[in-house]
């Protein structure tokens, strides 16, 4: 009886594994379809909105980064990290406007320009995505 019960358990377990693999393959197939239907445009590199600033900031070690957006771990939109990623190995200093260059990432351009003025810097470049590069002592 014990042997029979044991083999029954083994058969059931193996059937379960097969069932799970089957379920997974169906979902995987579904995932293929979702990807093919939904994503036709090429994936953009994180931080592409700041790419232009790379050339402008060539040979700059540290750059300030100021924003009027929520920068809490839970609420930030990732723009600071995106900028840090694309501009690495440059060090971005969040909230520090003491450097020669500061990147201003604001919720709208007018506000961003005012923020640059407030820190005593002059906007030297604005990207098509509204990211401002401001310079002190220009």
């Amino acid at each position: 009886m014990a042997i029979k019960a044991n083999s029954a358990v083994k058969i059931i377990s193996i059937s379960l594994v097969f069932f799970l693999i089957l379920v997974q393959l169906i979902y995987l197939l579904n995932l293929f379809v979702i990807f093919e239907k939904g994503k036709t445009s090429p994936v953009q590199e994180p931080g592409y909105e700041f790419t232009e600033l790379k050339l402008k900031l060539k040979d700059t070690g540290r750059v300030g980064f100021i924003t009027d957006k929520d920068m809490s771990p839970e609420g930030n939109d990732g723009k600071f990290l995106e900028a840090q990623y694309i501009l690495a190995p440059m060090v971005l200093e969040l909230g520090n406007s003491a450097n020669r260059f500061t990147i201003v990432d604001s919720s709208n351009l007018t506000r961003g320009l005012a923020m640059a003025e407030n820190i005593g810097a002059v906007p030297v470049h604005v990207t098509p995505y509204g990211k401002i590069l401001a310079e002190k002592g220009h």
Partner: peptide, 19 residues
């Protein structure tokens, strides 16, 4: 990127924002 392109400043990694 810091390790590869950071040259002598690769240790700047440790001064990055805590995020």
């Amino acid at each position: 990127k810091f390790l590869i392109y950071g040259a002598d400043h690769w240790k700047d990694i440790f001064q990055l924002h805590w995020h």
